[in-house]
Design a protein around this nucleic acid. Sequence first.
RNA 1: GGGCGCGUAGCUCAGCGGGAGAGCGCUCGCCUCACACGCGAGAGGUCGCAGGUUCAAUACCUGCCGCGCCCACCA
Length: 911
Amino acid sequence: MGSSAPHDAHFESSDPPQLEQNRASPVFAVPHAAHVSISASLGPFRRLRAMSMPEKPSLDGLEAKWGERWEADGIYRFDRTKTREQIFAIDTPPPTVSGSLHLGSVESYTHTDLIARYRRMRGDEVFYPMGWDDNGLATERRVQNYFGVRCDPSIPYDPGFDISTLERPDDRPVAVGRTNFIELCGRLTVEDEKAFEVLFRRLGLSVDWLQTYTTIGEVSQRASQRAFMRLVGKGLAYTAEAPTMWDVDFRTAVAQAEIEDREIAGTYQRIAFDLEDGDGRIEIETSRPELIPACVALVVNPDDPRYASVVGKVVLTPVFRVPVPVVAHELADPEKGTGAAQVCTFGDVTDVVWWRDLKLPARVIVRRDGTLAAGHFGEPGWESRDPEAANVAMAQLEGKAAKQARKQIVELLRDGGWLVGEPEPVQHMVKFYENGERPLEVISSRQWFVKTLELKDELLERGRQISWHPGFMGARYASWVEGLNQDWALSRQRYSGVPFPVWFPLDDAGEPVYDDPILPEEAALPVDPQNDVPPGYTAGQRGAPGGFVGDPDVMDTWATSSLTPQIAGRWEDDPDLFERVFPMDLRPQAHDIIRTWFFYTVLRAHLEHDSLPWTNAAISGFVLDPDRKKMSKSKGNVVMPTEVFEKHSADAVRYWAASARLGHDAAIDEQQMKVGRRLAIKILNASRFVLSMEAAPGPITQPLDRAMLSTLAGVIDDATVAFDAYEHSKALAAIETFFWGFTDDYLELVKQRAYGAAGPEAAGSAVGALRAALDLLLRSFAPFLPYVTEEVWSWWREGSVHRAAWPASTEASDAAGPDRDPGVYEVAAAVLSAVRKEKALAKVSLKTPVDSVTVHDTQDRLRLLSRASADLREAGSIRAIDQEEADTFSVDTVLAEPDPPPEPATPLEPA
RNA sequence: GGGCGCGUAGCUCAGCGGGAGAGCGCUCGCCUCACACGCGAGAGGUCGCAGGUUCAAUACCUGCCGCGCCCACCA
């Protein structure tokens, strides 16, 4: 599927995990000359101060401290002098600022940041902008609710308008003019955007905050208007009067992508249509009997023998007595209902297909607000055998919404004897606007469309060219494209959004000439046709016969959002930048907007640039409310991001997010955040311990030290491979598992030696290995836990860990030197663990001395063990370790009698 | 109706052809000189069900069952 499609991104996972060696920090090969001299010459207190390492490290305050420093130092600043090959460009999702930011966003934005930080450490110059989606219906609704206003375009602009002094006499929304309304939108979204930025900064997103844009901003308006004009120029965008899905509450057209199915209660009525020749009746079933006055035909399947004899005949509609033909069409399903269906203008999308294919007339009775219009029976196009009765019946329906009209007509049908049997209640699927409350109607209106249907195959191919992470998400895209059934309805009869850069000339009668739209010069963009005057006209000609009128609509919010790569890349406004970032490398997003943001972005890049907008897609799953899965807690406990930041720290929340794989849903899990917090604290404490060792780091000579670093080299390889495959959770798990073993086993094993128990040389090896490992571990954890790693890094390293190189396994293996069998570490840890177990079972303190330990194991492993036996004896307070060859590993431990005299430290055995 | 994903310890999940794992929770123990915001340990699972392939299946194939999501012209 998508993942096997050809691509030429420069960071593919087939790359070996070796890195840009020139970028690796020159750490332990020549071990910190400057630092060593400090250690050697000063006491521990002075040394701590020199390293500015706190006595009692804490997570408190790290977010404020490093958030400021990163911004002040420009750590995440994008360097636009880099070439396209050096740049990794991310098409960041612009969140809808009129919604609230919840943990789902926190999760997926963290996923993006993990990739950004990893790529940056791998040496890429990361282009990581941030956008705010602040146009569209969500903004309008928030402004309406927040200020208690509604938009009335007929009210002229009031420059002195002041919302704070606005009076609401009866607590109802106050009407304000269009421009004032849009100004309120702008005012509120600015506030919302500030709040979002605060939250995102706290989360530690490594975006370059200089690279921000808003979808209602001038750059976005110019880009969307320009792109739209070019589509018009190529004949790919067109205006047409056509039946379109329509929300009767928002009173706007909506596109297929914004439609969702919902199951609602309805009723099927069986209704009889009389054949005009008097030769019987045809029964149909419908859930929308109120549309009978709009019925223009009955349709049956051409192969349905039951109806073969009536095709071509004429029936009279019940109540209204309108003669309509019986026609045949393949889409008529013999299995459904009676096998015959009424065709109305328009009940649903299938009606539109029949209407179009069979070239039927239109009798429209649904108004834009969803109420039924008056009939015109007896007039042309509204023929009836009994127009008087039809109009009387229609008058009873007029002005009623669908539901009420339905009740009414059922009575009329029953009275006239057309109702067959009793209405049958059913649950059925009905189309809704995703933000809507009532079922969509199909209403004919003039809209702008973008051609998409004829591009299906090309768009499917584009989908196959993208590397999807995880791969199966490509199927979502494909099934969406395959299911497209209408061109993209681009216009919205709303106010908040990018206006169409279009005027229409008015003919002598003052009617718009839609076939001859007037477009501005590109240089004049952005324009507002409601305020701006088209070229060649004067302001006084607005609305006058022979003059012009501005297109009153705004574009679908996705018309702008689908251009985020172009907007962030400053397409045409800054061609140099655009060249360096487009097509981008990565689109990160959640799976719910594949049909919208993802699809439209692919479409726009295909149409405008004949290319993909990006080469990789990282698709996050959903975050599930824990309450929804389990028994609901008595409180409606909504977990807010700020709360969990306070409670667990940003690093801890990131840890939770990073634990979730791409493409898989995750539950909100505060336990997991606690684990993350514990990990962060552990990193602080373990680091402080490692860095407070008094012995000078020296050459790494001891077998256990070499084995540990050798093990770490393998871990780094695993993590690197995982990251390259967009499996950040796997990378984290590998690093974390090693780290806990590092603190629990390795630190314990070498602690005494590092203190000098086996002499300065052996101590130097331990301290050298500890510091080498710490350096590598901090860099490995840096993408996940940016705050705590930066804090520790600052204690002893120059610069930011987030500008350091991602660790290379060769750094660890080179530091380990030759003769670095990781088995030494593994066996020593296993024996230490077995001894601890004995002590735990005996319920004695871990410092309880052990008289003797007998290790049974294979010859090879025993040989490895003996190379670490001195460390093992120190760590477990073991007097003697005996070995016995055996097939399977086991340990016999003889604990010392209580109160034994302390043993002197044993000299280190030769390796 | 079609497609995708998931069903492994109480919970969240990893493993995906040869020993059933982690963390949390639970139980027991330890003030061990980095960390009690800590440390050590233990109990706990017929790896959804049924077939098949294989010397060997939790893992591969087929079919069921259950959960979730996506898509569908749902009269």
